[in-house]
Computed example of a mutant assay.
Amino acid sequence: MSKIKINLEALKKRLDSKGLLEVQQEEGYVEKMKVAFNSPATGKELQKLPFTLPEDYEEFLRLHNGGLIFTHPEYGGGFELFTVDEILEHRAIPGYDYPDNWFPIAYGYDGCYLIVTDKMVGNGYLYVMDTGYDFEDNMFIGMTFEDWLEKIIIAQGTKFWEWGFIIP
């Protein structure tokens, strides 16, 4: 079984009947968060994307064409994983001229976009772009989608890429 399927199945098993998961975040804050996934993307939908998808991200879309993870049921937040159509809509927003090989695949945390590219750099292809759409200040996070998904699940929805710890 693939890493994507293993992590998604383990996450879904922990959800209550309302799709909620109790999580502990920074400063001991404990709250129930919503997790919901859409139905699979069709082959026809996937063909709309004008670039070759990384295999792991394509697998996710074939399982779930987007969804919500670690979203507060009343106040929002968390991450919205885009559908194929939403990827294309966000890519086409006037005034936000993404580099040719950049596609926003998720949105969350006060304007943070998760960006997929069509090129591997080291161990990954994902970038995080904060509010303001400044392509100069983007953050390459050096991982694949399956690694990001696993880590955001383990980190209970927090922005683990900003923790800034140093491993000696």
Rank of each mutant, 00 (worst) to 15 (best):
M1C: 10
S2L: 05
K3P: 06
K5N: 15
K13T: 14
S17E: 15
S17R: 12
L20I: 04
L21V: 13
V23P: 08
K32V: 05
K32R: 13
K32W: 06
N38T: 11
A41D: 02
T42M: 00
G43Y: 06
K44P: 04
E45P: 10
Q47Y: 02
K48Q: 14
K48S: 10
L49S: 06
T52N: 02
T52I: 11
L53Q: 05
P54Q: 15
L61V: 07
R62M: 11
H64G: 00
N65F: 06
L68H: 06
F70Y: 06
P73I: 02
P73Y: 05
G78S: 08
V84E: 06
E89C: 08
H90G: 00
H90L: 11
G95R: 09
Y96M: 14
P99C: 01
W102C: 08
I105G: 00
Y113L: 15
Y113M: 08
D118C: 12
M120H: 05
M120L: 13
M120Q: 13
V121T: 14
V121F: 12
N123S: 15
Y125R: 01
G132A: 03
Y133L: 12
D134Y: 05
F135P: 07
D137T: 06
F140Q: 12
I141E: 14
L149H: 05
L149G: 02
